[in-house]
C-alpha cells in the first residue's frame, strides 16, 4: 500500500516537478517541429503560419483589447453554464440514484434527451432565448448536466448496501444518511463526473459561439476563418487548449482536497 501511495496518491515535491517537466516534453517538441516546418518553408505560411506569427497575432489582438475580451466572455460563459448544469446534474442525479420512484420516472426520458446531439438544441434555444447570453449558457449547461447526472446517479445507486444498512442501524436516515454514508461513498465518481462536465462545457461553448455570437473564442475562430486569418485560428485553438487544461487543473486541485481522506 505504501508503494502505491508513493506512486499515485501524494507524490513528493521532487516527483511532482519531474512529472511537470516530463509533461512539457511533448508540447516543446511539437513547438519545435512547428517552428521547423514553417521557418524552412516546407509548409506555406498561408496554410500554417509559424509560432512567431501566431504570437504576433496574439500581441496585436491584446493591444486592441480584443483578446482579453474574447477570453473573458468565453470563460464567463463556460463557468456559468458549468455551475448551472453541474448543479442540476447533482440534484437530478441524486433523485434518480437514491429513489426508485425518481429512477422509474426520470431515467427513460433523460436517456432520450441525452441521445439528442448537442447542435440540435441550437435552433430551438436561439428561437426561445434569442441570440444572447442565455441561449449560450443554457447550451453549455445542457452539456455539463449529463456527465454529472450519469455518474452521480450510477454512483449513488451502487453505494455498498451493507454500509447504508450500517448507517441506518446507527440511526441515520434521510439527509443525514446521505451526508454520512451515500455522498462520501459516491464522492470519487462525483468528482470524475465534474471533470468530464467541465471538458464538455468547453466543447459546447465552441459549438454555441461558432453558430451565433459576436464575441468569444468560438467567434474568433469563425470570424478568422471567414477572413482567412489562419494565425488567429491557431491562436484560438491554443487558447482553448490552455484554458481547458487550466480549469481542469483547478478541478484536479479540488479533487485532491476532497479525496484526501480516501487515499
Amino acid at each position: 500500500m505504501a508503494e502505491r501511495a508513493g506512486r499515485r496518491g501524494a507524490p513528493s515535491r521532487g516527483g511532482r516537478a519531474r512529472a511537470l517537466g516530463l509533461g512539457l516534453v511533448v508540447p516543446a517538441a511539437l513547438l519545435a517541429v512547428w517552428y521547423l516546418v514553417t521557418a524552412s518553408g516546407a509548409v506555406p505560411a498561408y496554410q500554417l503560419p509559424g509560432p512567431g506569427a501566431v504570437w504576433r497575432a496574439a500581441v496585436d489582438l491584446a493591444a486592441r483589447g480584443d483578446l482579453g475580451h474574447h477570453v473573458a466572455i468565453s470563460v464567463q460563459r463556460v463557468l456559468s453554464g458549468f455551475v448551472l448544469g453541474a448543479g442540476a446534474g447533482l440534484a437530478v442525479g441524486a433523485a434518480v440514484g437514491l429513489s426508485r420512484l425518481g429512477d422509474a420516472l426520470l431515467s427513460p426520458t433523460l436517456g432520450a434527451v441525452r441521445a439528442v446531439p448537442s447542435l440540435a438544441w441550437v435552433p430551438l434555444l436561439i428561437l426561445w432565448l434569442k441570440i444572447g447570453e442565455d441561449s449560450k449558457v443554457t447550451l453549455i449547461a445542457i452539456g455539463a448536466f449529463f456527465p454529472v447526472y450519469t455518474t452521480v446517479s450510477a454512483a449513488l445507486r451502487h453505494v455498498d448496501q451493507q454500509l447504508v444498512e450500517a448507517g441506518r442501524a446507527f440511526g441515520r436516515g434521510g439527509v443525514r444518511l446521505l451526508a454520512t454514508v451515500q455522498l462520501p461513498a459516491a464522492l470519487p465518481s462525483v468528482v470524475a463526473g465534474l471533470r468530464l462536465a467541465l471538458a464538455q462545457s468547453w466543447l459546447f461553448l465552441v459549438a454555441a459561439e461558432l453558430i451565433a455570437s459576436s464575441m468569444g473564442l468560438g467567434f474568433l475562430l469563425n470570424d478568422s476563418q471567414q477572413n482567412g486569418r489562419v494565425d488567429r485560428i491557431l491562436l484560438a485553438i491554443v487558447l482553448l487548449a490552455v484554458l481547458g487544461k487550466l480549469t481542469d487543473a483547478l478541478i484536479g486541485l479540488l479533487e485532491r482536497r476532497l479525496l484526501r481522506s480516501w487515499t
Binding site: Q162, L163, E165, A166, R168, A169, F170, G171, R172, G173, T180, V181, P184, A185, L187, S261, W262
Partner: peptide
C-alpha cells in the same frame, strides 16, 4: 423501531466507512 437507540449491532463484516 428502526435505528432504535436501545440496541446496537456488530455485523458479520466490519462494515466500516473506508474514508473515515
Amino acid at each position: 423501531t428502526p435505528g432504535d437507540r436501545r440496541t446496537a449491532v456488530a455485523f458479520q463484516e466490519p462494515r466500516l466507512l473506508p474514508w473515515r
